[in-house]
Design a protein around this nucleic acid. Structure first.
Lengths: 148, 148
DNA sequence: GCCGGTAAATAGCCATAGCTATAAATCATA
DNA sequence: TATGATTTATAGCTATGGCTATTTACCGGC
């Protein structure tokens, strides 16, 4: 048994933290998606958001309400959804993190398609510090040409 | 732009998959916790489970109902919670995966305490294939003595 | 300018995961 | 053995995140 006397309180905090990340995850996904749609299509319509997220249209509408409540997005009915400044910042951050996580997984030997799949879930739980470690790792790998 | 024409359907599937993992995550955490408590204390009482999970006691009771429904656990009121065979297998698998994820994160330069925190969320999204990649990585690191 | 079709919003349902407050069951002990 | 303390279960609330069915609003073409 290497570790874990596991002070119950600490462990409880860990779980609480994981639950917390979880609650932010969907917001992040939607915000990133809206950013992508604007980049690709020039606008983000509710129907497109729903399709890409793989949910029914009212589900997307409801999620967008939450984004608005959190000041991440605005929308003009029948005119699409728009990110606020905060939303744009978040989207950029999330997109960058996603790319880093995928690249990192690939760099340590995960097949690209699997990396893409797993990253979708993993990324939301990657802290700033862990992300930094991934970036450092990638920088090293790049410096040495290839894996080695 | 390296990747992502992102066929909407594929992407939708990715999100669906991430949501799915999410729904299994809590079951995994509870099952592992019950296993730990049996190992440490010889029994798993609802109150202890609740404390360690950082939730109120009725929340734990409700989760345990779900475990029973899924044939992962049984319980005799006021006598504790017990894992079924399936539950025990799951617990072992989850515990092993958790250890691997933490060890891997540490090996790529994540501080131990952060690794422990992040692993709690990450582990549930690590597929069999990604786990294999982590194990391979760890085997390599071990073989070469240290990082290098 | 009306009218049909599409897009979005609304209504109303389900399950999960949390909570507090309360009831019931068990245990320990006087 | 009865009683008080502890432990578990239950009731009933909130919010999230799904869904289908329906209504409402908009837009384009005739």
């Amino acid at each position: 048994m290497p570790d874990q006397p596991a002070h119950p309180k600490d462990q409880a905090d860990r779980f609480a933290r994981a639950r917390e990340s979880q609650s932010v995850a969907l917001l992040e996904d939607y915000v990133e998606m809206i950013g992508d749609l604007h980049a690709e299509l020039g606008e983000a319509r509710v129907a497109d958001i729903a399709e890409r997220m793989g949910v029914a249209q009212p589900t997307a509408t409801k999620a967008i309400s939450r984004l608005k409540r959190e000041d991440l997005a605005t929308s003009r009915p029948y005119r699409g959804v728009f990110l606020t400044e905060a939303g744009t910042l978040l989207a950029d951050r999330v997109r960058a993190r996603h790319r880093t996580v995928v690249a990192f997984l690939v760099a340590v030997g995960v097949p690209a398609d699997v990396a893409e799949l797993d990253a979708e879930g993993i990324e939301h739980h990657v802290s700033r510090q862990t992300l930094k470690a991934f970036e450092r790792y990638l920088a090293n790998v790049d410096a040495r040409g290839r894996r080695r």
